[in-house]
């Protein structure tokens, strides 16, 4: 026996990679094509479809809206989700079991149903402005992920550490920021990235909540492909991918560094 992996294992792994990478290669290739229609392999190389994105005002506006919604929604979900996850773990014994389940329920509801329900209650029912409704919708959409991920990293946190800090004279709220948060940093980064990507790529909930004048990027892509078959959608997809990766990198850096500096 050697510790070389079995040939079949290598082949399967390679196939999985190909399966995962091929769509990306095709999208990037199509985005770079010089033709006026979507094609692969690209014929001629050009960046004109990337510049085209910014010439279409609907794309410019929806990119901004999508980023705003994703940032604000993720931020709000963290603001609500971190204390919720903290309370669920800190008072696990005292709190009823179903309370934790409550935060997972939105994942179980089909997003289409969730979006429709929000439309009925927020936009139609309460007359909430479109942007605010979108923000609320996305916050609720990503909240379960935030609570789950933060809970997972709090599960291994020893709360007697918190009590040690309090006994040394640190007020409870301050202790939460100086002792608890730094120790769930990894969970916060993961939760941020997961929530941000989920929000940025969401179609089902946004489909119902967008309205006249305000839309998100994925919805705009849908609207675009209904009318045009040019490589713009491919280049927008590539742009979306880069945005996501950039945000991940920035979050990793800033959250990582500011907490390490303390």
């Amino acid at each position: 026996m050697t510790d070389r992996p079995h040939p079949i294992l290598i082949i399967v792994a390679a196939l999985v990679y190909v399966f995962l990478m091929v769509p990306l290669v095709i999208v990037v290739g199509a985005a770079l094509s010089d033709t006026t229609y979507l094609t692969f392999p690209p014929q001629g190389l050009s960046l004109r479809w990337f510049t085209n994105i910014f010439e279409i005002s609907a794309f410019r506006r929806t990119i901004v809206t999508s980023l705003q919604i994703a940032f604000l929604g993720t931020f709000l979900a963290l603001v609500i989700g971190i204390p919720a996850a903290y309370a669920l773990n800190r008072y696990r014994v005292e709190l009823p079991r179903w309370l934790g389940t409550l935060f997972v329920l939105p994942i179980l509801v089909p997003e289409i149903v969730f979006g429709f329900a929000l439309l009925k209650s927020l936009t139609v029912g309460a007359g909430v402005p479109i942007f605010v409704a979108l923000l609320i919708g996305h916050t609720l959409l990503v909240l379960p992920y935030v609570v789950r991920v933060i809970s997972a990293s709090l599960a291994s946190f020893d709360f007697s550490i918190e009590e040690a800090a309090i006994s040394l004279g640190s007020a409870p709220l301050k202790t939460f920021f100086t002792i608890v948060l730094p120790n769930v940093r990894a969970g916060m980064i993961a939760a941020f990235i997961l929530a941000f990507i989920t929000s940025l790529n969401d179609v089902s909930v946004s489909l119902f909540l967008t309205g006249p004048g305000i839309s998100t990027l994925p919805i705009q892509i849908l609207a675009h492909v209904e009318q045009f078959f040019d490589p713009t959608v491919a280049s927008v997809s590539v742009l979306l991918m880069f945005l996501t990766v950039a945000v991940m990198a920035v979050v990793e850096r800033t959250l990582g560094l500011t907490f390490l500096a303390k």
């Binding site: 040690a164 309090i166 006994s167 040394l168 004279g169 640190s170 007020a171 202790t175």
Partner: peptide, 10 residues
């Protein structure tokens, strides 16, 4: 508890 000034060893 944070005003009690008690040293704790766990």
């Amino acid at each position: 508890p944070h005003r009690r000034d008690i040293g704790l060893v766990f």
